[in-house]
Design a protein around this nucleic acid. Structure first.
Lengths: 333, 333
DNA sequence: CTGAAAGCGCTAACAG
DNA sequence: CTGTTAGCGCTTTCAG
């Protein structure tokens, strides 16, 4: 049995109240009793029980994070940012892998509530009305990352996908490309799918480039799907000089496809990705891509959550993006 | 104020004991009272407070995981395995990023103890005597992953680095290579550094290949360091036909170096990596590498921990490794 | 400066 | 079948 505050009190001949004060650095005891008590604490190896503490203080100093997957590079980077900032604020983070599963997500939400977490972060996935509702019912501060929310009490933090996508295509056009294709993510994804397509269309129309549906193929953001989508895209549009991929992984899929077909990147085909995860620096050639400050979104989201825990209502935020130029886009001009 | 068990008891005209029984599915009430109580629970939106529960049951159903970094692909994959299995067992996991910092690690250890986690997993980093000692002092079940432990009460789960390394080099030799170099990780790393070098030496000596110190360059397991180490290695050993890298990331660094120098992989140089993380499939050419069942190590570690929580003392375990053949090694024979 | 006592929300005997 | 009563380990008035 681990020693409790009672044991310390008994052994040092004081009341538990005094021990509590000493442990918590509150005033109200003489230097001598403090010394005496500290010694007993030391001897016994006493450590306060956070569970008991949390019960009376009604605070747990922990937040929960829901992610559709833990093994993606995006999730990893985000988690790094979240954990870092949480640790700075002396908060713990419990991770939940929703697997993009509604039931599982709801279960986790319940669980987090029962565990009395002080805040919930929900990332990279559509915040359904259902989720938003249960979250609001909880009355626990919550924010979403890399996804939107139309509920004002649940702010979001993300980059403006349409604008970023527009910039990427614009960048291609500025480099002299006119025959541009796209490998989008999941077809009707309202977060990372549709807006990015919209950005491309906007860039096309502003530059007088006609848009056709067959210029777009769909993947699932993963490497393999990028490779396969490129296969289809190339078959229907062999004359393309550049393609924009909605994720770095899919962009690498394109690179692999080109390699196998003997097409040189960027000489025969230019490729631009999206995310700027570590793999963008490790590819051959290094990938030009839309940079999202993933880790920073994590730390900022935690800051947001902390504001809410402190009783304020922060605004949703768009993070800055930029094009990180490496060597996968050729200048045709 | 969220409703408590008392509110439910009052509103349904029964005692808290009865409500508790109903909530926990214990026997001891008529179907009618159950129905009545359930209705009140529903109306009030009552959910049990896990903190209070944990206090009396002295169980928290949560484990803590310490990782030197969260954003690496290795960590991400491991976490995925850990969270999955923990969730199966209805356990929560709190993540801690030690940043390979001794102070920070000790702080986390204290924190986890205070939060009364039921088990601790420590990954990818040397378990110092100091850590082992505080862990043992806690009396909380603990296991280490991808690293060793000489403390019997803290079992490890890892692949046999020396044997795996030996296999990798043996594979190269079987493919006709004799002039083989290595890019190792951190120089005196007792876990992933020294044993892997030992494996290489063993393969060399068994095949009558003379070993020289200059055949090895050191990196830090990261991409950039792999590139730079290869630069040095190539300068001093331009006649190499194959290089063994102690991590996939460093292997990709080698690939990039070769690309820039106009050397074809595997035609001009064969490369074999270590880990078999996702990037090994995404490189050009796809990387032949030593497969470590990372995610599985995570799930198995949780199983181990659960056994310990149940009062048993599991044995340390070596996981199976294998060579995953892709296209970065040329057969010279 | 210090202690007694009343909880925090819940579980678990123990009576009835 | 159901209620009463002690706590779990700690914080926090309120007295003194």
């Amino acid at each position: 049995m681990r020693p409790t505050i009672k044991d310390v009190a008994r052994d040092s001949g004081v009341s538990v109240a005094t021990v509590s004060r000493i442990v918590n650095g509150l005033p109200g005891y003489s230097p001598e009793t403090r010394k005496k008590v500290m010694k007993v604490i030391e001897d016994l190896g006493y450590k306060p029980n956070a569970v008991a503490r949390n019960l009376v203080s009604r605070k747990t100093s922990t937040i929960g994070v829901l992610l559709p997957q833990l093994s993606s590079h995006f999730a990893a980077k985000l988690l790094q940012g979240i954990e870092d900032e949480a640790h700075n604020r002396r908060y713990s983070v419990v991770v939940c892998n929703t697997d993009s599963n509604g039931k599982r997500t709801q279960d986790y939400l319940e669980l987090l509530r029962e565990k009395q977490v002080e805040g919930i972060l929900f990332a990279s996935e559509l915040l359904t009305d259902e989720y938003a509702e249960t979250l609001q019912g909880f009355g626990i501060p919550a924010a979403v990352i890399a996804t939107t929310s139309h509920v004002p009490s649940i702010p979001f933090i993300k980059v403006d996908d349409e604008a970023a996508s527009y910039s990427a295509v614009q960048f291609l056009i500025e480099n002299g490309h006119q025959r541009i294709g796209m490998i989008s993510g999941t077809k009707h994804d309202p977060i990372s799918g549709i807006p990015r397509i919209k950005g491309l269309k906007k860039a096309f129309s502003e530059n007088g480039i006609p848009f056709e549906e067959e210029l777009i193929e769909y993947g699932d953001f993963g490497f393999r799907s990028g490779y396969e989508a490129m296969e289809r895209l190339y078959r229907s549009n062999p004359e393309l000089t550049a393609v924009f991929a909605a994720s770095d992984e899919m962009a690498l899929g394109i690179l692999s496809f080109c390699y196998e077909k003997g097409m040189k990147v960027p000489d025969d085909l230019s490729v631009i990705g999206y995310d700027d995860t570590d793999i963008a620096t490790m590819s051959i050639p290094p990938l030009t891509t839309v940079h999202q400050p993933i880790q920073e979104m994590g730390t900022d989201a935690v800051r947001m959550l902390m504001k809410m825990i402190d009783g304020n209502q922060p605004e949703s935020r768009f993070m800055a993006y930029r094009i990180t130029k490496r060597n996968s886009v050729k200048n045709l001009t």
